[in-house]
Lab assay of single mutants.
Amino acid sequence: MTEYKLVVVGAGGVGKSALTIQLIQNHFVDEYDPTIEDSYRKQVVIDGETCLLDILDTAGQEEYSAMRDQYMRTGEGFLCVFAINNTKSFEDIHHYREQIKRVKDSEDVPMVLVGNKCDLPSRTVDTKQAQDLARSYGIPFIETSAKTRQGVDDAFYTLVREIRKHKEKMSKDGKKKKKKSKTKCVIM
């Protein structure tokens, strides 16, 4: 069974824990209790493949930012979460993405942009803004509501699919490099 290491990042209060708990335990946590770091595991079937999701729910508070490099190193894919009623959390996505790329030393890291709290009427981040940002990053965008469960499975499952595509691409690139290195030079 394939294991996928997913990391949920975003500013404090955007609903990272609520999304994760909704996926794992099928219930909505409405009281806000700032996370330092929590880890969850769940076995699911995605596109006919049974897999184990190892999900790291991270601290959004700035005082825990020193811990970010460590979990970013171990993560295979990242859910970059903002709240649709919090423009600052949307603007912060850029910083999370840049930090992930720096730590992973790669421009090509599996990510999904997630606009959470889409059940709320007080939207300050337009869907088109988020779609445009995701398009500019070359990553999928999904709106979710941890409260109603809308888009929750889709967000995590899409990230797994992005990781699969990335692994497939990397193995193809690896095979191309191996083929090239088999060419021999004969000096007579």
Rank of each mutant, 00 (worst) to 15 (best):
V44P: 08
M72T: 05
A134W: 06
K16H: 01
A59M: 01
V29N: 10
I187F: 06
Y4I: 06
R97K: 15
V7G: 02
L53M: 11
I36G: 00
N26I: 02
I21N: 15
E37C: 02
K5R: 09
L113Y: 15
P110D: 03
Y71D: 11
A18D: 02
Y71I: 03
K169L: 06
D54L: 05
S65N: 04
P121A: 11
V112P: 02
E63F: 03
Q61T: 10
K182D: 05
C80K: 02
Q129K: 13
K16D: 00
P110C: 04
L56A: 01
G15N: 01
K101R: 11
L19A: 14
E37W: 01
V14N: 12
Y64N: 02
A59V: 00
V7Y: 03
G115Q: 08
G75N: 09
Y157S: 07
D54H: 04
T2S: 10
D153M: 06
V109M: 03
K16T: 02
T2I: 11
D173N: 11
G10N: 02
R41P: 00
A155I: 05
F82N: 05
V103K: 11
V125D: 10
V14Q: 13
L6K: 03
I21A: 04
G138D: 03
Q131G: 11
S136M: 10
D33C: 01
E62S: 05
V7I: 14
N116Q: 15
R102I: 07
T58M: 00
G48R: 10
M72D: 09
G12Y: 09
Y157H: 08
P110N: 04
V9T: 12
E31R: 15
V186Y: 10
L52W: 13
R135Q: 08
V14A: 12
Q150T: 11
N86M: 05
S122I: 06
S122M: 10
K104D: 14
V29W: 05
I100S: 09
K167C: 06
A155Q: 12
I100K: 02
V44I: 14
V114Y: 02
I36Y: 01
F82H: 11
K42L: 05
Y64A: 01
Y157I: 08
L23W: 12
I21L: 04
E63W: 03
K104F: 15
I93F: 12
T183L: 03
D126S: 08
G13D: 10
Y4G: 14
K16R: 01
L113T: 02
P34I: 03
I21V: 15
G60T: 00
T74C: 06
C118L: 11
C51T: 07
D126M: 07
D105I: 14
G10L: 01
A11V: 12
H27T: 07
I187E: 15
K128D: 07
E62V: 03
R135C: 14
C185W: 05
T20D: 02
D57M: 00
E49Q: 12
K172P: 02
D54P: 14
S136V: 08
L19V: 08
H27F: 12
K172S: 11
D47V: 04
D47W: 06
C118K: 10
S106Y: 09
S89L: 02
L53A: 14
D154K: 06
F156I: 08
M111G: 01
E76Y: 14
V109T: 13
G15L: 02
C118I: 10
Q22R: 09
E76R: 05
I24M: 12
G48Y: 08
I139W: 06
V160T: 09
D132F: 06
Y64G: 01
H27E: 05
L52A: 13
Y137H: 09
D119F: 11
T2G: 13
G48P: 08
D173I: 11
Q22C: 03
V8E: 06
D47H: 12
A83K: 08
D126P: 08
N116C: 13
V112G: 01
L56K: 02
V8D: 06
Y71L: 03
Y32G: 00
Q25H: 03
S136A: 05
E49C: 06
K101I: 06
G75L: 02
R149G: 06
V152K: 13
E107K: 11
T127I: 09
G174C: 05
C51M: 11
S122N: 14
I100A: 09
A130K: 12
E98A: 05
K169I: 06
N86V: 09
K104N: 15
V81F: 09
C118V: 10
L56S: 01
E107N: 10
R102L: 11
I46R: 14
E37D: 03
I84M: 13
Y32S: 01
L23A: 15
D33W: 01
L79G: 01
H166Y: 06
L56V: 03
R68N: 02
T20M: 02
T58N: 00
Y4W: 04
S181L: 12
I46C: 10
E31L: 15
N26W: 10
S39M: 15
A59C: 03
V125E: 11
V14F: 13
T50A: 10
R73L: 10
S39L: 15
A11L: 13
I46S: 12
C80G: 06
I187M: 15
K177T: 14
M67V: 04
S106C: 11
E107H: 04
K42T: 07
V103A: 09
